[in-house]
Design a protein around this nucleic acid. Structure first.
Lengths: 342, 342
DNA sequence: CTGAAAGCGCTTACAG
DNA sequence: CTGAAAGCGCTTACAG
């Protein structure tokens, strides 16, 4: 609020309505024990004065702010390019709004290790709780949160072994189904384009496990040569595919651990004169919006970022409201979407 | 904060340090007139007690919250798919963080007209000011902000004629340069894929003007048949291109008002057996990250969303701090990036 | 059903 | 350089 005009407070409303300011408080908080007539008077005064309760005062008195933090230990620039994360944020925002909560964004600006996002959040001391995007480097941040007695739920896996509240999609099963699908099509040599080898996030580890399990079920021994690394970008998918094609015994199918790398793979294959899926099949992961529009439309695993965000937010609100949590870890379904690239 | 543990306040710190709590206040606010020795004592007490000043109390006393709102009168789902907007938000976030401010997100959930985003913001009465994404329907929201004496800066054009503070890229010049580039290549019939005809945003109107001006300079009369509408999505670009190709005298170049539609156009052209740029040139707008990766790499107009966000945020902070604003409307450069699609 | 008192955790003049 | 007082705008028991 600008300081240009005098603020209108609960006392102004009380004077205007001819009641005590405590009564005004009752009205704005929808409490019982107010005559209909008094309530109307107060409402009228509120409207004519254009009164809005001051959140800072309210937070102070209630020890609750109706603000939840969203801690993203990434550079904002990176954050805003990850469609799955954005879907999560979007549904968290919706869920918060529905309860009259607002979202306070806390990202890690610049090139630090992400701890800053937690620190700024804690320093502010304003939110009732937080949703945090779990990263391998998150242990220190989570400790900070614990140490300051915050309620929080993590989006992702229990990477930092804090054993608190987690929600994530069933990456393992999703990857397993994708692999079984390829197996069913007769493929025996399925190349993997994994995420970066360092700082591995739980999700990719689980995907790899799902892949290996499916292979094992089919009695196939995993050939480490078939696994190459990318960094989630499209160009990295192209480079990874180049390596796979250079193998003495190249794969007949490629399973990329995200859609953008899968798209890069398809480009590379096309420019090498190979047809997808006739010569080589490709499967992605995430089902980003562009996947269905791709040429050929991409077979992929749909993760409901929307669902992850919603469930995590609901969990946080239960924590804040002191309601019981059934399970500290929620795993949401991942669904194989078969299109034309496989 | 959870209520589980007793909060540590300024008074606890004072007791621990053996000073009055006002002195603690001085230390945490880095004020002069504190002996180095006292300061050290207080700092020590702060650390051992893990004290953090309470933002609500501070806001109340200071009448300032160090929170700025970001009002996006869109559905969060839409918001999170617009790369240019995301770039703006990302730089606003960075700018805010650098000053110790936090960003409070206020989006319009669901299918209302966007006014809700403003209303929730105003109802909260917590921010020191706001950055608002300007939309054609924003007039009522801006009035609400005015009526409640908020400082705010709009990202976009003065669509609602409130004549306050605005920052946007130079869409007109950018479109003019793109058009001149095409004219220079010898094109005389340049098709336009415009944004949606209803609810036109200032930016597309300006782009159209830039196009027409460039045409006029070259002595070419604008042929309305060459303008078709899309909705900024890739598929709409394909459909629009289909219409353009069906013309009795089709264009030799297409200028799409965003990159995604330009990509859709290229797909359509390719699948119609046409080569880009040999048979028909294509130019986009925005320079989203995927533009450079496209095949062929897309000629486009780079708008610095990052710059727009930064400048708007800086303007808002000046307003909040009572510093003078040189100009209420800032126009930032748009730059033509020539790649292989033209 | 309504009012008076105390307090939330800070900051801001004002003394000394 | 440091402390005592008052106040920011609400809510929360407690009376009546």
């Amino acid at each position: 609020m600008t300081g240009s005009k005098k603020r209108v407070t609960i006392k102004d409303v009380a004077a205007q309505a001819g009641v005590s300011y405590q009564t005004v408080s009752r009205v704005i908080n929808n409490q019982a024990n107010v005559t209909e007539k008094t309530r109307r008077q107060v409402q009228h005064a509120i409207e004519t004065l254009n009164f809005r309760p001051n959140l800072a005062a309210r937070s102070l008195a209630r020890r609750r702010s109706n603000i939840i933090g969203l801690i993203v230990p990434y550079d904002a620039d990176y954050l805003f390019r990850d469609p799955n994360l954005l879907a999560q944020i979007s549904s968290i925002d919706a869920e918060a709004n529905a309860r009259g909560y607002n979202l306070l964004l806390s990202t890690a600006a610049g090139s630090d290790n992400g701890l800053e996002a937690y620190e700024r959040f804690v320093r502010n001391q304003v939110a009732d709780g937080a949703l945090v995007v779990e990263t391998a480097a998150g242990a220190a941040g989570n400790q900070l949160l614990n140490h300051n007695n915050y309620f929080y739920v993590s989006l992702g896996y229990d990477l930092s072994h804090t054993r608190k509240y987690f929600v994530h999609a069933d990456d393992r099963r999703g990857a397993g189904e994708a692999t079984r699908h390829l197996l069913q099509k007769g493929h025996r040599r399925i190349g993997i384009i994994n995420g970066p080898p360092i700082g591995a996030v739980g999700a990719t580890q689980e995907r790899l496990t799902g892949y290996m399990e499916a292979l094992a079920e089919a009695g196939i021994i995993f050939d480490p040569c078939l696994m190459v690394y990318g960094d989630y970008t499209r160009p990295s998918g192209q480079r990874a595919t180049e390596k796979l094609l250079a193998l003495s015994n190249p794969p007949t199918a490629i399973f990329a651990f995200n859609d953008r790398m899968a798209m890069g793979a398809i480009w590379k294959l096309k420019s090498a004169g190979l047809r997808v899926p006739e010569d080589i099949a490709v499967v992605g992961f995430d089902d980003i919006p562009a996947a269905a529009d791709f040429s050929p439309p991409l077979t992929t695993v749909r993760l409901s970022g929307v669902q992850v965000g919603r469930v995590a937010a609901q969990m946080l609100f239960k924590l804040i409201d002191g309601e019981p949590i059934e399970s500290p870890e929620v795993v949401l379904p991942a669904e194989l979407i078969v299109r034309q690239s496989s």
